[in-house]
Design a binder for these strands. Structure first.
Ligand SMILES: [Mn+2]
Ligand SMILES: [Mn+2]
Ligand SMILES: [Mn+2]
Ligand SMILES: [Mn+2]
Lengths: 232, 232
DNA sequence: AAATATTTTTAGGTTAGTCTAAAAATAAAT
DNA sequence: ATTTATTTTTAGACTAACCTAAAAATATTT
């Protein structure tokens, strides 16, 4: 194959498959929670593949300078790898906004579709989509949408389970399963809902709350742990 | 692998890859122009793959009952294969409408993006997209968008090169290359433009036309062949 | 410190989708 | 009717992405 210029050749060599993108995203997500390098096992759990497959893939990614890898010592993303991962997350979350805001999907059914849409390659498409959506900073689950440079908007948020007293507004969820999100709908615990803590029950960590100043409700510790709240 | 019910098992067996979808679409397109079964060579040209690869793939598609195939005799789509192909075309053209109408792309840059988007699987997504776009019947190139049953809207159209006298409106193009479409933009020959034939030049089949009743222009026979016109 | 358990890597194999080269069948030309 | 050209199929090989089973390294218990 012949290349007219260095840039084309460079891009060709850096060509990344959908699968490789997914691995990079998995490593990024693991690195968000842990400071240590991502372990083979952690990646294999996230990707639902065998540890052997992960070892294989890690080598390919290291070969392409997308991760730093030393045998037995786990893996970290390079600048280039991180860029691909955050861009994938950016696309995923923008498409989720599109599905909810424009196509009237509900927040519990969008994730698997965005999982496909995130791999569409055109950068112009992403820019136009971003503009069409009004440059949203958060997705329908309250997760921040990185900008084109990979910078996330931070905001102070607390797990409801750690929120001992006072009022707050639900601004995010830490679990994205359909089951959990539909249960939240049933409890009217959607994003933007205001919550007041009435009582934290010592016995099991359940929380008695007042929703939108008009309905009292007890929610389990597990639910409380998966809700992010902004104190007001 | 264990299946709880017949339907799941059925769908699993009928699982079709992106590549298989692309082959089915190629066969469909060939069959639109020719009544005879699609030849291996025709498919290999359309798919930019070797004839050997096509022979291989054809066997797999026949195994899945998506095409009828007899060695040396070419291939035709089964009902099931045709359904997959038309659905793919439906998705492709709906996404093209989305890109132009909602994201302000121009008609010459949308095809390769739609080539990726057409493989997104959710049928609910297609329904919602269709509704969001106002149930369009034609895409930005004037090609008909099949409905969910695979039925195309037909309309009478003539190649401009066959249109000897009188007035008409441009309603479609037979070539979708960026180069051709950008050239049409330069000539102001976009969809909806009215055209009057002034003269057909015997020597090389060029056509002298009047565009929107205000500009005379000579266009080559090659351009005229690739423009579809509705007489008025 | 040894024994045991866990994690990670290697070895070897599979499938989808591609290729080139060569053989077989069909079509066209003499 | 032969010969020649074209088309199609087969044979054999390659890569990406997966797998299981076994070996090697590291971590945890006793
Ligand atoms: Mn998601
Ligand atoms: Mn999300
Ligand atoms: Mn197109
Ligand atoms: Mn089109």
């Amino acid at each position: 194959m012949f290349f007219k210029n260095r840039i084309t050749r460079f891009n060709y060599l850096k060509m990344v498959s959908n699968t490789e993108e997914n691995y990079l995203k998995a490593i990024f997500k693991i690195s968000e929670k842990e400071t240590a390098p991502a372990s083979t096992n952690a990646i294999s759990t996230e990707m639902h593949t065998s540890a052997a497959s992960v070892s294989d893939m890690i080598k390919r990614l290291a070969e392409k300078d997308l991760v730093l890898y030393e045998k037995w010592k786990g893996v970290t993303l390079t600048k280039e790898g991180k860029k691909i991962a955050t861009n994938l997350i950016r696309k995923h979350r923008l498409w989720e906004v599109f599905l909810v805001d424009k196509l009237n999907f509900s927040w519990d059914e969008i994730h698997p579709i965005a999982e496909e849409l995130e791999h569409i390659k055109s950068t112009k498409l992403v820019q136009h989509l971003d503009e069409f959506l009004g440059f949203p900073k958060f997705d329908p689950h309250g997760d921040p949408i990185p900008d084109e440079h990979g910078n996330f908007t931070f905001r102070k948020q607390v797990q409801l389970s750690e929120f001992k007293k006072g009022k707050g507004i639900i601004i995010g969820v830490d679990e994205h399963s359909t089951q959990f999100l539909q249960y939240l709908d049933r409890l009217s615990l959607t994003l933007g809902t205001s919550i007041e803590i009435i009582e934290v029950i010592d016995y099991d960590g359940s929380v008695r709350i007042n929703i939108n100043d008009n309905k009292e409700q007890i929610i389990s510790n597990k639910v409380a742990k998966n809700l992010f709240v902004k104190p007001i």
